[in-house]
């Protein structure tokens, strides 16, 4: 089996893309879960503010989603651009 330099680079890009998105997905998943967990608790304590709490939860989750999107962008760049 003759392995050439271009092949190794492509293989590394594929592995890098998979690992980037895989590991990058862990943090936002845990973080957004903590946000939603506290939102459930807060609504349990004060159900009247459900609308406000839902809105705040979604905004907070959107912000913590950002690092997952960075990973997605890097994975797509590794797969299709570089």
């Amino acid at each position: 089996m003759a392995i050439e330099g271009a092949d190794i680079i492509k293989a590394a890009a594929f592995l890098g893309a998979g690992i980037s998105m895989g590991l990058g997905a862990i943090g936002p998943g845990v973080g957004e879960g903590m946000v939603a967990a506290k939102a459930c608790e807060a609504i349990g304590k004060n159900p009247k503010e459900a609308g406000l709490l839902t809105r705040t939860m979604l905004v907070g989750q959107a912000v913590s989603e950002s690092t997952g999107i960075y990973s997605l962008v890097i994975a797509l760049l590794l797969l299709f651009v570089v």
Partner: peptide, 14 residues
């Protein structure tokens, strides 16, 4: 590896 690692966090968060 990608879907394997990626599934850990969302499930713990969920």
């Amino acid at each position: 590896l990608c879907v394997g690692f990626g599934a850990i966090g969302p499930a713990i968060g969920g």
